[in-house]
Design a protein around this nucleic acid. Structure first.
Lengths: 357, 357
DNA sequence: ATGAAAGCGCTAACAT
DNA sequence: ATGTTAGCGCTTTCAT
């Protein structure tokens, strides 16, 4: 294949200057209609693809936005990626992706790499409370919007879900059904979402009159494996909870596999509530009761904030924080606890053969 | 915040030349240990982050690899993205992501954008048989490896699953269980995977002695919505199939939701087999029988092929095509058809009240 | 309406 | 071991 075309090549070929070619290609400034057409034709014929690096180097903007997230397999982040991608594409930006595995070091390194790449902006889900510190040290760091999770003391804008309200709604739902012993399976304890969700869980359960001993919290990472292990353990315990809250989709998948393998029937033997709303929650039988935030709105909001900030020339305005409310989706995975379970929660030993409720 | 540091700034500050700074930073060529340390210290103190654009422009390599795929929400591609991301990160490459929505125009545009971005390589899942044509017109296009799907007449390397064998195994399983009327829900007909899967489905069913009329194929796009619609229609039909094959995870989710809403019990009333293996297939009760390719191996292979090709200086060697075999995972969603269903498949009208098998 | 030329920040000959 | 310098391919003043 022939040599790659450049503005200089085109200019020479057409007997005009590089400036004219550039102008014709970019459409600003005046170029005679005739020259313009000649340039465009020649560009097309030669398969010219302008070098975005050279352009970005000169213009000092790359039209690249970084997305740095903990995970891309879990439905929440996969959907977020999808939505953000689409929003950025619509505005003419490309997305460069960093996946950190909720590891602070990788998070850190990706942020630096994105700065080196001179991205115009960063959408970031920090995995520790001080996940934004790296950028404070960088001169001229690009604007950041924190997505889903916030880090402490960051000057970045943020778009997060109404996690406290969401978890409160789920927990209250369980309490109102009569559950008196409930467990939450939690993820990465360093994430702001985890802290908020758990605080809200404990608080709501306690407000609902549950005993501290009957509000169980286990877990430690947002993975199916963790959900599976914890649930298996919980179900085998002396006094298993009558309801479980799996705080993200991965934990949910693991938890459900464990219940299914243990032969526990949902919602008869155990109520289950989850978080987020991947399509498969409806593929389950019964479908999963959950709290879901509108990811499309969150994504649009994040991109709006970011582009707004990117356009800002003068001193940065103060950080803007958006909380997006979700909806409680009542489906089939919750029901009142069985009578014998209710007794157990008051301290009785479980009977060997379960008594029908 | 202060001005951004550059090699020139560092050089001036230290009273050395830019070449020395560059050498110290990049570690090749000789620099005295003392100067080296001074440069490194100064770089750290000033928060210097070398401009990757300038570097790439000069070196003619970006250390950027493009991933252009139809979708990132469906578990298959989300997992693929995850695996590829990790493999690339390990080799020092960043990933830039394009999502096409199985739309030929967007696919086309993304490929061109990636060329402009001067990515070092492209991992591509084409959405039409001639999805690679754009790059043929581009001088000096980067190496491509086609992932999961192939396009016709492309010179690219490829890594795809053993789809024919996979679908054959699933279909044979159904036939051996005694199913005589089965439906496949298909996705994007322009994808090579779809064509292969359907051909194999028809062929295996016919080899198994099924009548042409009893081998149903519907669908048209890889989405939950499509899976839901088709399944709803299928279940309401005069002579519903006794088994359904949902040919990807999204179709599967829709199909399962439809069966659940229709009150159809799996596997008693209907056997279901799917494709790929997201964790939630095991969260379902019963767990889903499926054929799954090892995505981690496919990802590693794709990155190996790509980097190998990128390192190639001389004439490109002939395309290398890898087919990766998967495994049939027998789980709870399949069983022999009910007796009355077997009768129906021989031409009887379904009775209003199903007769227990 | 077009051209000449500077320069974005880096690397890599080529000198010394 | 270090310095000088010429670009990489583009955009954008500043002239004409």
């Amino acid at each position: 294949m022939k040599q790659r075309a450049t503005v200089e090549g085109l200019a020479r070929q057409l007997g005009v200057s590089v400036a004219t070619v550039s102008r014709a290609l970019n459409g600003h400034s005046y170029v005679s209609e005739k020259t313009r057409q000649r340039v465009l034709d020649a560009a097309r014929d030669s398969g010219f693809q302008p070098n975005a690096l050279a352009r970005a180097l000169r213009r000092e903007q790359t039209e690249l936005v970084a997305l740095v997230i903990p995970d891309v397999r879990s439905e929440f982040f996969a959907s977020a990626t999808s939505v953000l991608q689409a929003a950025l594409e619509a505005r003419g930006y490309r997305m460069i992706l960093g996946v950190t595995g909720d590891d602070a070091r990788r998070d850190h390194e990706y942020l630096e790499a994105m700065v080196r790449q001179r991205v115009d902006g960063i959408i970031h889900t920090p995995c520790t409370p001080n996940g934004a510190d790296v950028l404070e040290k960088v001169a001229n760091a690009p604007p950041v919007v924190e997505f889903t999770r916030r880090s402490r003391g960051s000057h970045a804008d943020s778009v997060v879900g109404e996690d406290r309200k969401g978890v409160a709604a789920l927990t209250r739902h369980l309490v109102e059904l009569g559950h008196r012993r409930i467990a939450a399976i939690a993820g990465n304890p360093a994430a702001s979402t985890t802290r908020e969700r758990l605080a809200s869980f404990r608080r709501t359960a306690s407000d609902g009159g549950l005993d501290g001993d009957d509000v169980i919290v286990e877990g430690g990472e947002y993975s199916a494996e963790c959900g599976y292990q914890v649930t298996t353990r919980l179900l085998a315990a002396d006094r298993p909870p009558t309801a479980i809250f799996a705080s993200n989709t991965q934990l949910a998948a693991g938890a459900l596999q464990a219940t299914s393998e243990a032969g526990v029937r949902i919602p008869r033997d155990l109520s289950v509530v989850c978080y987020d709303d991947p399509i498969w929650y409806r593929a389950c039988n019964p479908a999963i009761t959950t709290y879901s935030v509108p990811l499309d709105r969150m994504g649009a909001l994040a991109v709006d904030l970011l582009l707004d900030r990117m356009a800002e020339s003068d001193e940065p305005a103060r950080p803007r924080h958006r909380r997006v409310a979700g909806r409680l989706l009542l489906r089939g995975s919750t029901a009142p606890p069985r009578a014998d379970a209710r007794l157990e929660a008051r301290g009785r030993k479980p009977s060997a053969a379960p008594v029908p409720g």
